Simulated assay, not measured.
Amino acid sequence: MRVRGYAPATPCWSVLSSGDPAAAETFYRGVFGWTSARTEDGATVFLLRDLVVAGLADSGGDRSGWLTYIATEDADATAALVAGNGGTVLQPPADILPRGRAALLADPAGGVFGVWQRAGFTGAQVANEPDTICWSETVTWDVDATVAFYGRIFGWTEQDGTAGVNTHYHEWIAANRVVGGISPMNELYPAGTPQHWRTIFSIEDCAAFIARTRELGGQVLAGPVDAGIGHAAHVVDPTGGAFLVIELLPELRHLLG
């Protein structure tokens, strides 16, 4: 689906920060059928049908991971709110001209996220269709503390998940609209797993995606599994970036619109 803008307090953009950007670029081009290009400021973006779907950055040798950016009208004010509510400003707001202004932040439990104040670029230009990002969620040990923090930062509220998953799930609400999720960690997660944000991609065929992942050097941590709303898999790219994919049940695919 073509996206032309994002309301404040809405996840709007995801970037893979990779220790080996060249290897990551090869993997994602192969597994999703994306192309790639360079922006005016030298950044790398992935495209589907010539529309920007996600970004790629060099982590400088650090571990790889997907980073969720949340739209804001004032990156400086949001960073100040984070710092004043027990979070951490990892990278202060800075201009990324001509595209926008961004900051890298962490919640009190260590979950890292970014905020994006748009200028010439609003965020992903295509989403909520196969081979694009369809969902972002906070993965946490402490739902109550997470709800309290993000409620103060973005004005989000929480409701029980309504998509029919098999485990208890929560959804983020902004301006009476579902904008993301909260996934509680349980005994299936290794002790000490930090709170984090997770990026989820829509796919058409989970089994075929798993096969492509393995052929291209990625790993499958779990899946395909019945997630209640479809078949899902938890995978890791060859550089260590983890993400989820979901093949929605046919009767639920209208939810992506």
Rank of each mutant, 00 (worst) to 15 (best):
M1H: 14
P8D: 11
C12N: 12
L16A: 00
S18K: 06
G19N: 09
D20F: 08
A23M: 11
A23S: 11
G33S: 07
G33Y: 02
T35F: 01
T35N: 05
T35C: 01
T35D: 10
S36N: 11
A37V: 11
A37W: 01
A37I: 12
R38S: 12
T39C: 13
E40F: 04
D41V: 04
A43D: 10
T44A: 13
F46W: 14
L47I: 01
V53N: 07
A54S: 14
A54F: 01
A54W: 01
G55W: 02
L56T: 04
A57S: 06
D58H: 05
S59Q: 00
D62F: 12
D62N: 10
W66T: 01
Y69M: 11
I70G: 08
A71T: 13
D74G: 10
D74N: 14
D76Y: 07
T78A: 13
V82L: 10
G86N: 08
G86A: 09
T88N: 09
L90I: 04
L90E: 01
P93Y: 05
A94C: 03
D95V: 13
I96W: 09
L97E: 12
L97Q: 11
P98F: 01
R99I: 12
G100N: 04
R101C: 04
A102K: 04
A102T: 03
A103R: 02
L104K: 15
D107I: 15
P108I: 00
G111F: 00
V112R: 14
Q117W: 12
A119T: 08
T122Q: 06
G123F: 08
Q125R: 15
V126M: 08
A127H: 00
N128F: 10
E129H: 03
D131C: 15
T138S: 15
T140E: 07
D144H: 08
D144C: 07
T146R: 05
T146S: 15
A148G: 03
G151F: 09
G151E: 09
F154H: 07
G155I: 03
G155R: 01
W156E: 06
W156D: 02
D160E: 15
D160V: 15
G164N: 06
V165F: 10
T167N: 09
E171Q: 11
W172N: 03
A175Q: 12
V178W: 02
V179M: 02
V179Y: 00
G180R: 10
P184S: 02
E187I: 09
L188K: 05
L188G: 12
Y189D: 11
P190T: 11
G192Y: 00
T199W: 03
I200P: 01
F201A: 11
F201S: 07
S202G: 06
C206A: 15
A207T: 11
F209L: 14
R214Y: 09
E215T: 06
L216T: 04
L216V: 05
V220Y: 05
L221R: 08
G223H: 04
A227T: 12
A232I: 02
A233V: 14
V235Y: 11
V236W: 00
A242K: 05
A242F: 05
F243R: 01
E247T: 08
E247G: 05
P250A: 06
E251M: 09
L252E: 02
R253N: 04
H254R: 02
